[in-house]
């Protein structure tokens, strides 16, 4: 009932969008595709939702082949494209009704499944979809993708352009849907959302860098990370980048994440160097790696 992808490749003219992608999504799993814009996430979604044909490789969704059984797959999957793709000139209720009808069901029949989400937008059910806020649009789109009780749910960047509160709510909803037995494949460019998935695949330039649980990915981070801060952020970054033993330097909120090439790295040595660069208020502390650090390290 999950998703199986083996050796999928896809090119647009000269551009290789996906190169030899393979992974498995177990039934009832919340699986995340994490990668920057242009990594090939949308292309992969479109192949799995039978909208595109891969140049090479095979894939099954809910045990059905994406090429041969595309008509069957279209009955059982819910798909929410990255761009808001509902009818803007139809009201919330008309949109939901329409999608229920074309899937041969009704709002009442599957109300239970969408209730948690739909109650939040129900007060606006007579409003045109085009006039909703970003967060409400996402909720409506999710309701529409769920109305036929899909076995597998594909969500392509569902939280892009949504405020932090709505994003948090959205992920809570996904967790609840997972409990109802739906397999979910979700993509996001936000690394912080990755930690909320059961397993994730880090993807860049059409290639998968790593597949594992978020905890394992972080655990496998090879280096010791230090949070470095000083009075002048910009100068700090430049100085760190110029340091001869630096391995990686990435700004991370109010800190800079720093790793060193040497295994016997001594923070005091770095502090002395930075002071020599006219920086003050210097603090260097050990910290935990995040998914973002792992991604940066892998993408190097």
């Amino acid at each position: 009932m999950g998703i199986s992808v083996s050796n999928i490749s896809k090119s647009y003219k000269d551009l290789k969008a996906l190169q030899n992608i393979s992974f498995e999504v177990k039934p009832n799993e919340l699986f995340g595709l994490i990668g920057p814009d242009g990594a090939g996430k949308t292309t992969l979604f479109r192949i799995l939702t039978t909208l595109l044909i891969a140049n090479e490789g095979e894939a099954t969704v809910a045990g059905l082949d994406v090429l041969k059984d595309f008509k069957e797959i279209r009955k059982y999957v819910g798909y929410m494209p990255g761009r808001f793709s509902l009818y803007q000139d139809l009201t919330v209720e008309e949109n939901l009704n329409f999608f229920a009808t074309i899937f041969g069901t009704s709002i009442e029949e599957n109300y239970e499944l969408i209730k948690d989400i739909y109650v939040q937008i129900e007060p606006f059910k007579d409003r045109r979809a085009g006039k909703l806020s970003g967060g409400m649009k996402q909720k409506l789109a999710l309701s529409c993708a769920l109305i036929h009780k899909p076995k597998v749910l594909f969500l392509d960047e569902p939280t892009t352009g949504v405020d932090p509160v709505s994003r948090k709510e959205f992920w809570e909803m996904l967790k609840r849907l997972q409990q109802k037995g739906i397999t979910i494949l979700v993509s996001t460019p936000y690394m912080d959302e990755a930690a909320l998935c059961d397993r994730i695949a880090l993807i860049q330039d059409g290639e998968i860098l790593q597949i594992d649980t978020p905890e394992n990915i972080v655990k496998q981070y090879p280096k010791t990370i230090y949070d470095v801060s000083a009075n002048n952020m910009y100068q700090l970054i430049n100085s760190l980048k110029a340091y001869q033993h630096k391995h990686s330097v990435y700004p991370f909120g109010e800190f800079v994440h720093y790793t060193d090439t040497r295994s016997d790295f001594n923070p005091k040595e770095l502090k002395t160097y930075l002071e020599a660069q006219n920086l003050s208020n210097i603090s260097i502390e050990r910290t935990q790696a995040t998914i973002e650090d792992s991604f940066m390290e892998l993408a190097k």
């Binding site: 909208l51 279209r74 798909y79 494209p81 793709s85 009818y87 074309i102």
Partner: peptide
């Protein structure tokens, strides 16, 4: 983009 959703439907 609604065609995308219509295509992924029965």
């Amino acid at each position: 983009g609604t065609m995308e959703i219509l295509l992924v439907s029965p």
